[in-house]
Amino acid sequence: MIRIVTAGRVRRLEQDAEQARTRAREIQGQADAAWRRHVREVWELTARAESAESDAGILRKQTYRLEAASERVRLLEGELEAAKRSGRSLVLLLHWGEPHSIHRSREDAFAYAATQGAPVHGWTPSDERVHAEATWQTIAFTADETVMGFRPALASGPEPMGGAA
Score class of each variant (00 low, 15 high):
Gly149His: 04
Leu94Cys: 05
Ser126Thr: 14
Ala24Phe: 05
Phe110Met: 14
Leu45Gln: 15
Leu66Val: 08
Met1Cys: 04
Ile139Cys: 02
Glu159Asp: 05
Val73Met: 07
Ala68Asn: 11
Ala69Tyr: 03
Arg74Asn: 04
Arg21Pro: 02
Asp127Cys: 03
Ala49Lys: 11
Thr6Ser: 15
Leu93Glu: 14
Ala132His: 02
Ala33Pro: 02
Glu53Ile: 07
Arg3Lys: 12
Ala31Asn: 06
Phe141Gln: 10
Asp32Ala: 07
Ala56Met: 06
Glu133Leu: 03
Arg25Gln: 07
Trp96Cys: 11
His100Trp: 10
Ser105Asn: 11
Val5Asp: 03
Ala83Arg: 14
Thr115Met: 09
Ala33Asn: 08
Thr124Cys: 03
Ala56Thr: 11
Ala83Cys: 08
Thr138Met: 06
Ala111Arg: 14
Ala20Gln: 12
His121Val: 06
Trp35His: 14
Arg11Trp: 00
Val39Met: 05
Leu75Asn: 13
Trp43Glu: 14
Glu44Ile: 02
Met161Pro: 07
Ala155Tyr: 00
Ser105His: 09
Gln116Asn: 12
Ile102Trp: 02
Ala140Val: 01
Leu80Trp: 02
Val5Tyr: 03
Arg21Val: 08
Ser156Glu: 12
Ala113His: 05
Thr115Phe: 04
Ala24Thr: 09
His131Ser: 11
Arg40Lys: 06
Ala69Asp: 12
His95Trp: 05
Ala82Pro: 06
Thr142Met: 08
Arg3Gly: 01
Leu90Pro: 12
Trp35Tyr: 10
Leu80Asp: 04
Ala155Glu: 07
Thr6Leu: 05
Thr138Glu: 04
Arg3Cys: 01
Leu59Tyr: 09
Leu13Met: 12
Glu18Leu: 10
Glu77Ser: 13
Gly97Leu: 04
Pro160Glu: 03
Arg60Leu: 13
Arg23Asn: 06
Arg12Ala: 10
Ala165Tyr: 00
Val130His: 01
Ser54Gln: 13
Arg85Thr: 14
Ala118Arg: 08
Ala33Tyr: 00
Ser126Glu: 07
